[in-house]
């Protein structure tokens, strides 16, 4: 029996999760449609004045992204938990953290990346400038993985609980506030004529920090939930 290297394990898990998701495309689309809908509701609620919309656009997009990522968190481990795959995954000799990282990456590619790609279109609805749109994309690219990573901890802790969906939002949303602040702040600093570099650097720092710790913490949380 040849042992898998860490990279091939990571790729294997990502491929598996993506493949499973592709078999049920509706799940991925639901998150995306939810995101588009929430963002589109704001002009209806607030009014069509372009000045107001331009001002609230980054915040609206970020809050919607946050909610959309909460919505899909339940799927990160629950299917594997229900059919017993997760139990087998805990038994493999390879690093569980790496396995969890694979699942996080797959979750981001399915729920974060589509949002990043569609966000510019929604930004146009809010009359954002081209420069602001680029910064929005950059900020979302750096920030949405952090949401998936912090969310993984919550998803692992609430595995198999009653009302897990609401509970996971309650646990994870307060922890995501820094991402929201700097993500929306990056776009706003550009629109007010300042540089977005500081905000983006902080988002990058958060990404690196969570990349190191959250897979391990989520793995611990999984072990707690599964024992």
């Amino acid at each position: 029996m040849n042992r898998l290297s860490l990279t091939s394990l990571l790729l294997l898990v990502i491929r598996r999760d993506l493949l499973l998701a592709m078999r049920r495309r509706a799940d991925v689309l639901t998150t995306l449609v939810f995101f588009v809908m929430v963002v589109s509701l704001f002009p209806l609620g607030i009014g069509p004045e372009a000045d107001t919309l331009r001002k609230i656009a980054p915040g609206v997009v970020w809050v919607a992204a946050l909610l959309a990522s909460m919505l899909s968190l339940g799927r990160m481990f629950s299917a594997d938990y229900l059919d017993g795959t997760l139990e087998q995954m805990l038994l493999v000799p390879q690093s569980l953290s790496m396995l969890v990282l694979g699942k996080i990456v797959a979750h981001w590619m399915l729920s974060g990346l589509p949002l990043v790609l569609i966000a510019p279109v929604l930004g146009l609805q809010f009359d954002m400038s081209a420069q602001a749109l680029w910064v929005l994309i950059a900020a979302l690219l750096l920030g949405t993985p952090v949401l998936s990573m912090i969310g993984a901890i919550g998803a692992a802790l609430t595995l198999g609980l009653r009302g897990g969906g609401v509970l996971v939002s309650l646990l994870v949303l307060p922890l995501c506030i820094p991402v929201l602040i700097f993500g929306a702040g990056a776009v706003e600093s550009v629109t007010t004529g300042m540089s977005a570099v500081s905000h983006l650097s902080l988002l990058g720092a958060m990404l690196m920090f969570s990349l190191v710790f959250t897979p391990w913490v989520s793995a611990q949380a999984l072990r707690i939930s599964m024992e």
């Binding site: 802790l157 609980l161 913490v217 707690i224």
Partner: peptide
């Protein structure tokens, strides 16, 4: 909010051992 999350998590787990450990991890994070 963080306090409420901690209390809600512990309240929704029946098994006290798991509730303790899950709450602990959340408090540390």
């Amino acid at each position: 909010f963080l306090y409420l999350g901690f209390i809600a998590l512990q309240a929704s787990i029946e098994d006290t051992r798991r509730a303790d450990r899950a709450g602990a991890l959340l408090a540390i994070v």
